[in-house]
Write a protein that binds this DNA or RNA. Sequence first.
DNA 1: GAATTCTTGACCATTTGGGTCGGGAAAAAT
DNA 2: ATTTTTCCCGACCCAAATGGTCAAGAATTC
Lengths: 162, 162
Amino acid sequence: MQITARGRYAVMAMADLAGCVCPPEECCRAVRLTEIAERQGISLTFLEQIFCRLRQAGLVSAVRGPGGGYRLARPAAEIPIIEILRGAGEPIRTTRCNPDGGPCMKAPPGRLVGGPEREPGERCQTHDLWAALGREIERFLASVTLADVIGERLAGPEAAAA
Amino acid sequence: MQITARGRYAVMAMADLAGCVCPPEECCRAVRLTEIAERQGISLTFLEQIFCRLRQAGLVSAVRGPGGGYRLARPAAEIPIIEILRGAGEPIRTTRCNPDGGPCMKAPPGRLVGGPEREPGERCQTHDLWAALGREIERFLASVTLADVIGERLAGPEAAAA
DNA sequence: GAATTCTTGACCATTTGGGTCGGGAAAAAT
DNA sequence: ATTTTTCCCGACCCAAATGGTCAAGAATTC
C-alpha cells in the first residue's frame, strides 16, 4: 500500500503554487510550470500531464501565452488534499468492488484476482474491513487542506484529529 | 493508493483460518492450505508463498505431513490486522524516505523520483502530511483485530473509532 | 517407504508507474 | 502578422512491481 508519485507530485506542486501567491492579493500572477518543475525537481512533461487533470478537476485555472501559467482556482484553505489526489487521478481504492455496485472483488477480464465470482451484492468476509479503512483514509485527507500543509500545521501525532 | 492482492489475500486467509477453529478449544486441528485456497478462490501456490511469510512472522504455526496444516499462533482477538499486512510483506509506505534516516524522497538508483537530492534530514514540504497519513492508517489497522473481522464488528461508518 | 503437507527458491507474464516526444493552440509581444 | 511563450494532449516507451507458476526438498504420519 503506497502512494504513487503522481499523487505526491500533485500535492507538492499545489503546495508550491499556493506558496507563490503574494499574500495580500490572491491572484498577483500566474506561475509557470517550468518554475514549479525546477523548484520541486519534477519532470516538466510529467507535471504538464498532472496539471492538465487538475485543471479539468477545477482545482487550478490556466493562462496561456507569455506571462501565463497556473493559479489556484480557490484559496488554499478551501482545497482539501483528497480533492487534489482525486483530481490527479489517484483514487483511494481499498476494495476491489466495481464502483457501480457490481460483484465484490470481481476479477478483471481473464484474470483471477480476489476470489471466486460472486453474485452482485454478495460480499467477501473482509469487505467491511477494507471499506472502513477507505473511509478512515478519506476522512483524514478531507480534513487537511492545502493551507494546513504549507502552514506546517501537521506536526503533532494528533494533527487534524477533529 | 491501493492494497495489493497479497495483503488482501493474507487477511482473507487468516480470517478463513480463524473461522475454522472449533469454538471451545482453540486448537482442534490444523487447516490445510488446499482448503483455504479453494474456499477463498486463491491460487494455492501463491497462498503458500504468503503463509511462508506469515509463519516467519510468527502469526501462524505449521504442521507438516498428513493431517497437517496451519493454525493461528494466537487467539484471533490478539492479532491486529496491521500485523498480518506487515507479516505478508505489505508495508504501509506513505513517505518515500529511507527507513534508516537517509534523505527524504531520495530517488532509487538511477531514477528521478520525488524531487531533487536532499541532505540527510532535510524534508520536503509535504513530508509531514504523508507521515501523518501513515500514522492514521496504522492506528486504524492496529485497532482492528482478526476477531473483529470475522465477528463483523465493522459495520457502521464509525467502527473502531476508539 | 509411500503419501501428505508444508518450504523455498527460481522463474515468468502482464500490468502499471513514471516518463518522453511531438505536435498543436491560444495569447501576448514585437 | 509573425514570433514567442506558455499551456494542451495524445501516442508511445521502458523498467519494475505484481500476481502467479514450477519444481525440488524436508518433515511427518500411516
